[in-house]
Design a protein around this nucleic acid. Structure first.
Lengths: 208, 208
DNA sequence: TTAAAATATGAGTAATTACTCATATTATGT
DNA sequence: ACATAATATGAGTAATTACTCATATTTTAA
């Protein structure tokens, strides 16, 4: 009942309105990057998009739907990158496959580091709509599947946990690097790979 | 000029007002945990603290000063834990010393996972006052110092980066575990240790 | 006992902001 | 050319919220 509607109010039929929607989404991203969640308000987004506040509400039922859309696009883009990487990783040894997956994550997150960090935080607080859930589950499934092909070399027994934790490690190290204004993707990739491989292949202690 | 003042407006002289301040700080923490930054407002904090809004502004010049105080306390508490752990870690081998340091971090963050995650995000956006900077630098220095004692075994050349990244890994894995409602500190500790050791001791690739 | 200092109160204010709606403009199909 | 659908507009509204200030109460100290 009180669940916020995140679906588009109206979907654009003409090219004109598609451009409007794109302008709004991009403006929302910029505002989030520059002002953070606190400075994020619909009037500012509309202004930045060069569009009236009324137009914004033609396509987004409320403020949260804007962030939900950014989140949807971000996860979808990461998922697509990982899908490609997972193709290449087919049959490769654990370490090399992992390197490719991590590369996809680094490239994705380094494109808009501030925005991604912010969205990562929002992810936990915003209810996940069906569409985003599907994409997120697809992404997670691909990682688990990859790990499963190498389960002999992986010492963590719960691959679901392993996939989630690997994502968490990658995100954290990429965020940290971006905070220091690092831009060398390969360098970051190496460090993430080291941490993730350490995590995955550490000799099991007693118990687990 | 436009820099927000985060210092207390007035410092409590009597026991009565100390209790007021404590009530306010604790209420601020609860509100952040339950409602997030979006639902965080001074009126709500005062109400929850059982104190008038006027009293709140006697001790905190503005809303951000409340979060700054929470941040200060959190970093101070982590620093204290790490200081103790670093004592014990003196002379221990890298792995065992690291385990102690990580244990401190896990214990700290697992005490109030939601709050810590949120504060972590705020940390980047709020200007760091002199006091918090000093504490944070002390913490960082202790980690660097510890790593320096084992620099033979650490393959990362920049120990400052290594310390920051280790903290990032720990925070991320603890957050992820808390998100899954895990509570077994030792289990989390092991996973963090595996990742951090992997990060620190990975054989260097060509370059660095 | 009493003056001064410390502390507490909460109605009130100005600013911000999410969102609506009546109306205007533009595009499409026939 | 024209009717209809799609799209765009932005002044206006109700709600929220950060913060003030004049006043009241409590504590301290002489």
């Amino acid at each position: 009942m009180a669940r916020p509607a995140l679906k588009p109010r109206k979907s654009p039929k003409q090219a004109r309105s598609s451009e409007t929607v794109e302008a709004i989404v991009e403006a929302a991203a910029r505002i989030l990057e520059v002002k953070g969640v606190e400075g994020f308000n619909t009037n500012a987004v509309a202004l930045r998009a060069g569009v009236s506040i009324g137009s914004l509400y033609q396509y987004f039922p409320n403020k949260h739907a804007l962030i939900a859309e950014l989140l949807r696009r971000s996860v979808a883009s990461l998922r697509d990158g990982v899908t490609q990487a997972a193709q290449l990783a087919q049959g490769a040894p654990l370490r090399e496959g992992m390197r490719l997956l991590i590369r996809a994550a680094v490239d994705h997150q380094l494109a808009r580091p501030m925005l991604e960090k912010l969205l990562d935080y929002q992810e936990a607080r915003l209810p996940m709509d069906t569409q985003r859930r599907a994409i997120a589950e697809d992404l997670q499934a691909q990682l688990v599947n990859f790990l499963n092909h190498h389960r002999g070399a992986v010492s963590v027994s719960d691959l679901t946990v392993a996939a989630l934790d690997s994502q968490a490690i990658a995100r954290a190290l990429i965020d940290a690097a971006a905070e220091r204004d690092e831009t060398d993707a390969r360098l970051i990739e190496r460090r993430v790979l080291a941490a993730v491989m350490g995590y995955l292949t550490a000799p099991p202690q007693r118990g687990d």
